[in-house]
Design a binder for these strands. Structure first.
Length: 417
RNA sequence: GGAGGAGUGCCCGAGUGGUUAAAGGGGACGGACUGUAAAUCCGUUGGCUUAGCCUACGUUGGUUCGAAUCCAACCUCCUCCA
């Protein structure tokens, strides 16, 4: 790995963000010499980003920290198509309404990582629907489409999977890379963007943008991709105990988010500290070097730091404290995630199965029953073996309500209201 | 437009008339062991008012005592030809 002169690339490199760069020395020189504007695109495929997208956001964050101007691009236009890169089959088309809803959901998170505004180094958020939607088909084909070789596009790894699996790649999807390339050029014209960053799966798309720039006479554009992150044991990032690790607080609580990072595999701690927190490198290295059970301290630090950036320091500390009470002291913290159940339901008694379903710990009565049969269920820390168990007012603790547990890690408070 | 092939549970994939809620693998979840880790081992993996009932093998009909399995039409995809 070469030594970078610019703060930005050096930081990214030291912290493990860099997978490929189109022209290392050229880009380094640019960053060393002037304030650079770079962008990353975010597809509105869900109403929240998840942990997998954090690495991109962190790259934008470091850009701003080292004195440059990040642009977060919402794919309101490209979302009308859906990126086929490395997908083994076509995605369902999203309606314009869904896309808009998703963009509204996604955009909120960025202000925790970036400072937006009008200044030369303030971050920008733009939506490619602004220029993609009004395009005139024939004009676009003549101005932009003629620069693309279908022969070449077919040779990209990103579509290979689809072709190899004998799955259809529709013409609609085939256009995605053209539009993304056009975005790059358009962003250069509008905001002087010189660099596009993204996950390593975006390399082909970004390179297309650079090529298009050449042909349309933009200044030299650059590509920088981050590694596709998996855990040390090979799983994709972003799955938690309760599903996806969403960034939006209404989709995943700060506590559950904290728990996700707390359960990081040993072998990932060092890497994640560098990627997902802003802790100094020597501190990250020290924490990662802790051996045996000691490394749990590093995991807590990781969890608290990552959570603090997203949900705020207070929420992170509280999540940490809730976890400490729950796992280390074995007492019921009243800050555990909770569900409210009408007090009246307990008068005649509510079945343990349906309580499990309402609390979200099980998807169906059958699943709850299987968990009970498997010995995974506890009520106020008492094992439950009877799936017909009725929960009545007598089971309620006056302070906390009722603690329902599934396995060793999932706990939820049931509050009578 | 013509000829041939395919569509199975979260995913991959077996299954060509009955004992099939459907082999096997993966993933996921739970248990044991640990350190709220990994690896390993064990178990579970359609719903319900659970000795029973309901829904399910692209869709809709049909044949049959009985269909994921046979027939017809339709939809989608693949391959070759035009």
């Amino acid at each position: 790995m070469s030594a970078f002169r610019s703060d930005f690339l050096r930081t990214l490199s030291e912290r493990g963000f860099i997978h490929q760069i189109s022209d290392e020395s050229g880009l380094d020189e640019l960053f060393a010499k002037e304030t650079v504007t770079a962008y990353i695109g975010f597809d509105p495929t869900a109403s929240s980003l998840h942990a997998g997208g954090l690495i991109q956001i962190m790259m934008l964050h470091w850009m701003q920290q080292t004195g440059h101007r990040p642009v977060a691009l919402m794919g309101g236009g490209t979302g009308m198509i859906g990126d086929p890169s490395f997908k083994d089959e076509a995605r369902k088309l999203m309606t314009p309404e869904t896309i808009q809803t998703n963009i509204d959901g996604i955009r909120k998170v960025f202000s925790n990582y970036l400072t937006f505004g009008e200044g030369p180094r303030d971050a920008l958020m733009v939506n490619n629907a602004d220029w993609l939607l009004p395009l005139n088909y024939l004009e676009f084909l003549r101005d932009v489409g003629r620069h693309f070789s279908v022969n070449r596009m077919l040779s990209f790894d990103s579509v290979k999977l689809r072709l190899d699996r004998d799955q259809s790649l529709s013409f609609l999807e085939f256009n995605y890379m053209i539009l993304q390339a056009y975005d790059f050029v358009e962003l250069n014209k509008r905001y002087g963007v010189r660099l596009q960053m993204g996950g390593s799966d975006q390399w082909g798309n970004i390179i297309n943008g650079i090529d298009l720039g050449h042909r349309l006479g933009t200044p030299q554009l650059f590509a920088l991709t981050s590694p596709l992150l998996t855990t040390a044991s090979g799983a994709k990032m972003g799955k938690s105990l309760n599903g996806a690790v969403w960034l939006n607080p209404d989709m995943l609580s700060a506590y559950d988010f904290w728990q996700y990072w707390r359960n990081t595999e040993d072998a990932d701690v060092g890497r994640f500290l560098k990627l997902y927190t802003t802790l100094p490198l020597d501190e990250a290295a020290r924490l990662a070097a802790l051996g045996g059970a000691e490394i749990n301290e590093a995991k807590k630090m990781l969890a608290t730091e990552v959570t603090a950036m997203l949900h705020g320091r207070d929420a992170a500390e509280q999540a940490s404290e809730t976890a400490r009470k729950t796992f280390e002291e074995g007492i019921t913290a009243d800050t555990l995630p909770s569900v409210e159940v009408p007090r009246s339901a307990f008068i005649n008694g509510i079945g343990i199965l349906s309580l499990f379903v309402t609390s979200g710990l099980a998807a169906s009565n059958g699943e709850a029953r299987r968990h009970i049969q498997g010995g995974a269920v506890r009520l106020n820390d008492e094992p439950v073996s009877d799936d017909r168990r009725l929960i009545t007012l007598d089971d309620l603790d006056q302070e906390n309500g009722l603690k329902l547990s599934l396995g060793k890690k999932k706990h939820i408070l049931v509050r009578p209201v």
